[in-house]
Amino acid sequence: MIGDGGGNKAVAIEDSVLNNTVNDVIGNKNDTTLSAPGMDSLYGIAAFMAYYHVHSPSVVYPRDADPIVLTAGVEVLWGEAAFNRDTNQVRGSQIPIQGAPVPSGTRISAALLSGTGSDTAAIKIYTHEYPIS
């Protein structure tokens, strides 16, 4: 190599949406701030992921109404969870079911699989919001 190796090291301009060079993809430290992260550079995406994953609000559905009662069935979407119960109580508390973010307005359905086929479970759904889906 001839030179100090400093060629082509200029960072992309702030909030650049260009996609022509590696620097365009990496981005600029002044890319859209954490309060409104951008998605046009790796820096912006990193800020987006860090900020919203850590700080976005948690939601319970239904929040005020009674829990949804599931009767025995067969269908569960996105994930599965298991708990035990005896005669008097359910030995399960909050059970995480992880999945990729789903678009807002997506219908979430669930069904209960029971050893006896006649049990019910009352549930509320705990979710984690992302600003874009």
Partner: peptide, 12 residues
């Protein structure tokens, strides 16, 4: 080959 890479203009 030799790569030219400089932070300011140079003559080679």
């Amino acid at each position: 080959s030799e790569t030219i890479s400089a932070s300011a203009p140079i003559d080679v």
